[in-house]
Design a protein around this nucleic acid. Structure first.
Lengths: 333, 333
DNA sequence: TTGTACGCGTTATCAT
DNA sequence: ATGATAACGCGTACAA
């Protein structure tokens, strides 16, 4: 019920609170007999040190935060799991914050900032001004899925190389009329589209302008209805959810994939593998992304000075059947 | 950098800390002039009250915890998002804890318990002994996806009725040889299998014993390889991930779905809709589940006594094509 | 309207 | 080996 305090333990054990603290933390000499008494008192009262007391005295929270947009979906979930796993290994709790409503964000982020020793922030969730403010406040901050901002570190996965490889693969399929589904001003995706544009240019292929849409199945469906009537050979999508939406739109329009039009995604979420047809995509190491962020953040918290470095994790091109016909041996599950 | 304290604000504003506190919280009379001075000092020092100090003084964390198993996947992500959203509305932060390693769980849960005003715990993550301990400690606790334990409240979605409806539908398809994929001793799933068994019994159909497997695509794949050689008419699966695995196993064995064998899932995760064939399943209101838990927990924290009540949210049967041929109009996306 | 002083629960320093 | 006691940062009776 009412949590007992170190004072009650001390009284019951017939010692001072200093001794109790020492006995519990092995932070100084305690005679075996005394330790025994303390142990008994602790068990009898079911004493657990108050986190608030400990944190106040230690001057640290032993907790990390993570900020992400609402986009929900499997992408963030996987990263979050990887983050929590490593944070737990490092003895730190994890507080989450989803910034959905545009208005209250700064206030809630500041509240979160007072509860943690460091923060991981997803790509485009916070304004650069806010990031600067965080960095200048001295709070260790790691950025995810984008490049570093002054005063921070960053972890993202490789975009340009995989995008180029994907484009080359699609060109080898004979595709010439390209369409791009998914906005281009957000950092992560823009890096991909830039690489795609360069690759197409090198092959003398017209570079399409990306059609903006929310990164959801519904968004992809709408984008598909807009793009497909122009009879592209292939629709490259900002992520797998968008691609799944485009596939639904193609069905609606009675277009066969990949016969009439090819479609590619990005991320390799679970649904990509099970979609009809199975989706050609780029696998991001989502859990590793989260784990790496936790580790980098831990270093920052330990006192390492931020160097504005961006760590880049490798991605894999995953060729399935939505991009065009392959000899069976070449397909991958 | 070094966060400023209320004392520094008070000194800069030329008032006492009590006045600063009152001015910031509107918790007592403060003259307009004084309020103005305080505001200026606060802005100049970029003062934000320390959460530790506030919590210690207020005697509350303004934070909730949530405990879930590793199973990851879309299921937990969706529930978590719904939980965080409502918790944020109620002005509470969210701490997450994933119990993957069997050993350290009690300790980490107790640590979490000291950081929050209340806890939501997923179905089978904690032992009943642990739940009892939590309840007796007086920490407000809400159980998710299972029935209430003494001293707690619970929120789950409806199982028996939907399971019966699904079984009836499958029987109407003419299926007689049933197989069940996914363990049966866990609360949520066992309720479904019980209802299925009763329904089959009423129709004079043999009741199969569930084949246990992890609730993952891989687990379903293994279960499928074991079950499919017996030529069942239909494999009912514990959840969608298992069903997706069974579908992969069927492909491997060159069995057509639903021609050679029907398959059903549970949850209606995103991949279910996009699978080939689209998966017949039962939709759980995942986000609502999380949101409801947050609200119930808030009541408990506000002082409402736990009544060991289980709230049951409605589920929807989602008929797609994996369970057998339908007239086009009857299918649902 | 404003200020003083105590309490919240720990850790850690300094005596003893 | 053990015990007083000063932080840590804030809210709030109570006094003025």
């Amino acid at each position: 019920m009412s949590d007992s305090t170190i004072y009650e333990v001390a009284r019951l054990a017939g010692v001072s609170i200093a001794t109790v603290s020492r006995a519990l933390r092995n932070t100084g000499p305690v005679s075996a007999a005394t330790r025994e008494k303390v142990q008994r008192a602790v068990e009898q009262l079911k004493f657990t040190p108050s986190r608030l007391g400990v944190s106040l005295a230690e001057g640290r929270h032993a907790a990390n935060g993570i900020v992400f947009p609402d986009l929900s979906g499997p992408y963030f979930a996987e990263v979050l799991l990887g983050y929590e796993e490593v944070a737990a290994e490092l003895g730190r709790s994890v507080l989450i914050l989803s910034t959905r409503d545009r208005d209250g964000v700064p206030a809630t982020v500041k509240d979160l900032a007072t509860r943690v020793d460091g923060l991981v922030v997803f790509g485009q969730t916070l304004s650069d001004a806010m990031l600067t403010e965080l960095a200048e406040s001295g709070l260790p901050t790691v950025l995810l899925a984008r490049d570093a901002h002054p005063g921070t570190e960053a972890v993202r996965s490789e975009n340009g190389g995989a995008a180029e490889a994907l484009a080359v693969h699609l060109i080898a399929h004979g595709h010439r009329a390209f369409a791009l589904a998914g906005g281009h001003d957000e950092g992560d995706v823009s890096q991909r589209w830039t690489a795609v544009a360069r690759t197409l240019g090198l092959h003398g292929i017209p570079v399409p302008r990306p059609v903006e849409c929310p990164y959801t199945v519904e968004g992809g469906y709408e984008a598909g209805l807009r793009l497909l009537p122009d009879n592209p050979d292939v629709v490259m999508c900002a992520d797998d959810q968008v691609a799944l939406g485009v596939i639904l739109a193609a069905e609606e329009l009675n277009l066969k994939i990949p016969g009439d039009v090819a479609v590619t995604g990005w991320d390799d979420i679970m649904a990509a593998r099970h979609a009809r047809p199975a989706l050609t995509t780029v696998r991001q190491p989502l859990r590793e992304l989260g784990g790496a962020a936790a580790r980098v953040l831990d270093e920052l918290i330990a006192g390492v000075e931020p160097t504005n470095t961006t760590r880049v994790l490798a991605t894999d091109l995953v060729i399935r059947s939505s991009c065009g016909p392959h000899p069976p041996a070449q397909e991958e599950q």
